Amino acid sequence: MRALTVETGRNGSVRTTEVPEPDVETGDLLVEGLALGVCGTDKEIARGEYGSAPPGREPLVLGHESLGRVRHAPDGCGFSPGDLVVGVVRRPDPVPCGACARGEFDMCRNGRYTERGIKDLDGYGSELWRVEPDYAVALDPALEQVGVLMEPTTIVAKAWEQVERVGARAWFEPRRVLVTGAGPIELLAAMLGVQRGLDVHVLDRVTEGPKPGLVTDLGATYHHDPADEVAARLEPDVVIEATGAGQVVFDTMAHTAAYGVMCLTGVSTAGRHLSVDAGGVNRELVLENDVVLGSVNANLRHYRQAADALAKADRDWLGRLITRRVPLSRAAEAFTSDSGDVKVVITIDNGNG
């Protein structure tokens, strides 16, 4: 069968190649791949900056943003042939740490977790793949065209959960939200904010292309002024930050409302230096009871939250997030950037692409 593979640590090695079909004796679900989302992590792996293949072999089958249809399901597993499913990315460490032992593997303490298509496990970028029933999540069949957005939605479902848990330490009725960036993660974060009935604002640099219209049609407000100016005007109660841009992070952090909660989901590039008024930042955080927290990955609870959020969303709007679809036979094209891209998806065309 065909799969999207990469030799980890080697730039430019992404290929569509033939690999063995998955072992039929595992007892897992056998899933026909339908689509695969491409994100920044995949591009880092493709550039050789990150990622590790299963121990003792190369290449790595790429792909952690999955969507597939069950072809075979063991008796009594809770799934049936024809079910639309996604596979969970992370697996708990084998020790396990206290968090992994309690199902909170997104909070692993010792770093021994594994991740499909990223760290020590093959991903979902193949015509057929296997997944344990306990790490598969069913989707509404009506989401077939957009269900590949499930995994990025889990990231922001967790971010919102973390914000609300932090806020619950005292009275918390947020009204205004600022989402920094307008990529797929950020737009999905904004969608979850709108679903919560909040006044949502999205900040990005671009003024052309699909992003401003996607924000407006969501019922949110789009901004493209400098981050410090926008944040100072809005004084948001909640900030979801996904750009990883250090200047945006600190400019926004300085202008939240009292008792503001800022959740960082973007990973910054190391080695970039800023001049920051550390004393001023400390003063604001302490005197206003503000919180800045980081959030990464997701556990099974967040996958279920994401499935519910997608089921409630406008499917036409979700479809507009996917601005380019590339067949598996030309998958390398998905790793090049286009100015009009929001989300690029590889279709697992099963030999017809």
Rank of each mutant, 00 (worst) to 15 (best):
E132D: 10
G197S: 04
V281L: 14
N11Y: 14
F335M: 07
A142H: 01
R301W: 08
L34G: 09
D28P: 05
A278C: 10
S337K: 12
G209T: 00
T41W: 11
V206D: 01
L84N: 05
H64A: 06
L128V: 10
C100R: 08
A136V: 06
V202R: 01
G82M: 02
R71S: 08
T347S: 08
T243Y: 03
N352L: 14
T153E: 00
A245T: 15
L29N: 13
A313I: 11
V238M: 05
V239S: 03
D277S: 14
R91F: 09
G294H: 11
D237C: 05
P94T: 10
S66I: 04
A245N: 15
R169Q: 10
R330C: 11
G246H: 14
P92Q: 08
R304F: 08
I322K: 11
P20M: 13
V344N: 06
V95S: 12
L62D: 05
V61H: 06
W129K: 02
A307G: 08
N11Q: 15
E186T: 11
A258D: 15
T243L: 05
A245P: 06
R233P: 00
E208V: 03
A46W: 06
P94N: 04
P94V: 07
P210W: 04
D314M: 05
A3C: 09
L4E: 10
R304K: 09
A168W: 05
L36M: 14
E58R: 09
V345P: 08
L143F: 01
V6W: 07
R69Y: 07
G82D: 00
V156D: 02
V345D: 11
R233K: 03
L139V: 07
T17F: 06
D277G: 11
L274V: 09
L218F: 01
L128P: 01
L293E: 13
A227S: 07
P55Q: 12
H72Q: 09
P174R: 07
G351S: 11
R301E: 12
R57F: 03
E25N: 15
A35L: 14
R71I: 13
R2A: 10
A331I: 15
A159Y: 04
V6P: 04
V95T: 13
L328T: 15
H255V: 08
A168S: 13
R205F: 00
L30G: 09
Y222R: 00
V177S: 05
D83L: 08
G63M: 04
P20F: 10
E288H: 12
V238T: 02
V156C: 02
T265S: 14
L143K: 00
A232R: 13
L4S: 06
E241N: 09
G123Y: 06
C100W: 05
Y303I: 01
T154D: 02
G260W: 11
V249S: 11
D237A: 07
G125H: 03
S13G: 08
T216Y: 00
L310D: 04
G9T: 04
N299T: 01
